[in-house]
Amino acid sequence: MNTIEQQLWDYIDGNLDDSSKKAIEEKIESDAEIKSQYEELLKLNLVFNELDLDEPSMSFNRNVMESVATVPAPVAMKTRVDKNIIYCIGGFFVISLLALFGYVLYHSDLNMPKFDFNVNLNYNLDQYITPTVLYSFLFIDLVIGLIFLDQFLRKRINKH
């Protein structure tokens, strides 16, 4: 539906304010095509008003509810999966993994390399722990503590 048609329907139904109503009246008077469209919509509106709406019988609701009650409730489909199929699929994957593991063992050198593990634990802590780091750590702890305190107090208030 285009905008002029929507505006004409709103004009026919009386859903427009005064300024929009005057603008549509001017369009109808000035444009012959809009006037013919307006007249067609008026005729259609009259036909719609003359139609009688069919109403269901008084017992329609009861009849529908009774027919729904007689239909059996759908049952979840119970399919049975053969356990042999699952065992075959699982066996295939186990055999595939064992074959892969055997291939890796066959093509690998089982000599363990000698680990030379020299760890130097002589750190200059004064280089890493500066007042800025310490203040930052304390600030973060303070913020976390305030968050936990807020949660604790909110839970306590909600209980009361």
Rank of each mutant, 00 (worst) to 15 (best):
V94P: 04
V94T: 13
L121S: 06
Y87R: 14
L125D: 13
G90P: 03
Y106V: 11
T132G: 13
A73F: 02
A73C: 05
Y106S: 04
I144Q: 00
L142I: 12
F137N: 06
Y135P: 02
G145P: 03
A73D: 14
D116K: 06
F137T: 10
G145C: 10
T132S: 13
E66M: 00
M77D: 13
Y87H: 14
P131W: 03
C88N: 10
T132F: 14
L134F: 15
S136I: 02
A69M: 08
Y103K: 07
V75A: 11
M58I: 10
A99L: 11
H107K: 07
I86P: 00
I129L: 12
I95P: 09
S108Y: 06
N111C: 02
K114M: 03
N118R: 04
I85R: 08
I144Y: 05
I144W: 01
R62H: 03
V75K: 12
V133S: 04
M58P: 04
G90T: 12
I89Q: 04
A69F: 08
N118E: 15
F137L: 13
V119C: 09
L138Y: 07
M77K: 10
N124E: 07
T70L: 13
I86Q: 03
F93Y: 08
I140D: 01
S57I: 05
S108E: 01
V143T: 05
R80P: 05
M65Y: 05
I86C: 02
N63V: 05
K114H: 03
V81D: 06
E66P: 02
P131Y: 01
F115C: 03
E66Q: 14
F139C: 05
L125C: 08
E66D: 14
L121P: 03
D126P: 02
A69K: 15
N120A: 04
V68C: 14
V68W: 11
N118P: 08
V133Q: 08
L105Y: 04
C88Y: 10
Q127F: 14
V64G: 03
S57A: 09
S96K: 09
D126I: 01
I129C: 04
I144D: 06
F93Q: 02
N124Y: 02
N120K: 04
I129E: 07
A69R: 03
T130A: 01
N111K: 12
Y87K: 14
L146D: 01
N124G: 08
R62F: 15
V133N: 06
I129F: 12
L98E: 04
F93N: 02
S67E: 15
R80L: 11
I85W: 11
S59H: 11
V64E: 05
K114T: 10
Y135W: 15
A76K: 10
I129W: 09
N122H: 13
F139Y: 14
T130N: 01
V119F: 12
Y106I: 11
S108R: 06
I89Y: 04
V94R: 02
Y128G: 05
Y135A: 13
N63R: 10
